[in-house]
């Protein structure tokens, strides 16, 4: 049921039964290391190209998700997946082997929430009893798609972020399932917000206004205050973007700084790992939620989370043509008790 301006209340409160996360070498060195399910130390993951490696990583992630939940792929009704590559080939080639009906999504780094929203809506309305949401990103394949060749000797600016090599997936089922698991209660799909930032090395600043818009709209629509949540988790704003979004909310009269967390900031140790403003990419939010926050929810260390994945919807072509960076943020409320 739609409430307020753009929020949907999920009456049947679908459950997130299980999640799985796969991370690459740099993320393994990061502070969240122990929370991830699978660690890959070879950036090629035994494949010939980075694109194939990313696809295999996503496949491993989905396979492991199904075995963790002891389900067969035959029982999955739909899978919603996406990545950063042109035409979403990492997802396409991964799901080719799975034999599950597939929706390919592109929301840049917001894809994880986008796929979770759609999967939970399908389950909520009984069109599906089991749906999977999955996304991936790979540092090397993203680098060659959006930036300079890997071996090119160039300097990154302090505002730059590092694409995370990781995949995350979640299995969503109806609340009748006999297993204690967190519920999805509200979803707030975001609008595209563009404040005219053109600098591709400053994504956090480009995406912060979109987060501000979605979060404040969500709070308004649901009549909740930020303190209602134990954590408001943004996808990959990075250090600068996080500061900006807290500032914007404060100016608007909503203080989220006490509960705000950012996956891009959490996944790396900025002092030891030289990752500038933090991590980014669809895999960032996906792996940090699937690994870290899902674990906290399961063990009742936190009970109410608002997950807000953020995406910058530009391409190199648009940037070269002088376009600014349109951004989007999708929010999803996940709670232990309903």
């Amino acid at each position: 049921m739609k409430i307020g301006k753009q929020t949907i209340k999920l009456e049947n409160t679908p459950k997130i039964i299980e999640t799985c996360s796969v991370v690459g070498p740099r993320e393994t060195e990061g502070p969240l290391n122990i929370y991830f399910d699978i660690h890959i130390d070879d950036i090629f993951y035994g494949e010939k190209t980075f694109e194939k490696a990313e696809s295999k990583m996503l496949k491993t992630c989905v396979d492991n998700l199904l075995s963790k939940a002891s389900t067969d792929k035959e029982h999955i009704d739909y899978i919603f997946a996406g990545d950063l590559l042109n035409q979403c080939i990492a997802s396409g080639y991964c799901i080719r082997d799975l034999n599950i009906p597939f929706f390919g999504l592109y929301g840049a780094c917001s894809t994880f929430c986008e796929s979770m929203i759609l999967a939970s809506l399908f389950v909520n309305s009984n069109y599906a009893s089991k749906a999977v949401a999955a996304t991936s990103s790979h540092f090397c394949s993203a680098e060659r798609q959006f930036r300079m060749p890997l071996e090119h000797g160039n300097q990154k600016t302090p505002t730059a972020q590092v694409t995370v090599t990781a995949a995350g997936s979640a299995l969503i089922m109806s609340k009748d399932t006999n297993k204690k698991a967190p519920h999805i209660t509200y979803v707030t799909p975001g609008k595209i917000i563009d404040m005219g930032i053109t600098d591709m090395t400053n994504m956090g600043a480009a995406m912060a206004p979109a987060v501000f818009d979605t979060v404040t709209t969500h709070l308004q629509d649901t009549g909740r205050s930020p303190d209602y949540y134990d954590a408001i988790v943004t996808g990959d704003l990075g250090i600068l973007g996080s500061e900006i979004v807290c500032d914007l909310c404060k100016d608007y009269g909503v203080d989220i700084s006490k509960v705000h967390k950012d996956c891009g900031v959490l996944i790396f140790d900025k002092d030891k790992q030289d990752t500038h403003c933090g991590g980014s990419g669809c895999g960032c939010c996906a792996s940090v939620f699937s690994g870290y926050f899902f674990e906290l929810l399961k063990t009742n260390k936190i009970n109410k989370v608002l997950l807000v994945a953020t995406g910058a919807l530009m391409s190199t072509v648009a940037t070269q043509q002088g376009e600014s960076i349109p951004s989007i943020a999708h929010a999803i409320a996940i709670e232990n008790e309903v």
Binding site: P158, T159, M195, I197, A205, P209, E243, I244
Partner: peptide, 12 residues
Amino acid sequence: YINYVQQKSKKS
């Protein structure tokens, strides 16, 4: 907003 971001961004 762009001015605000420029002020806030850490310089090289």
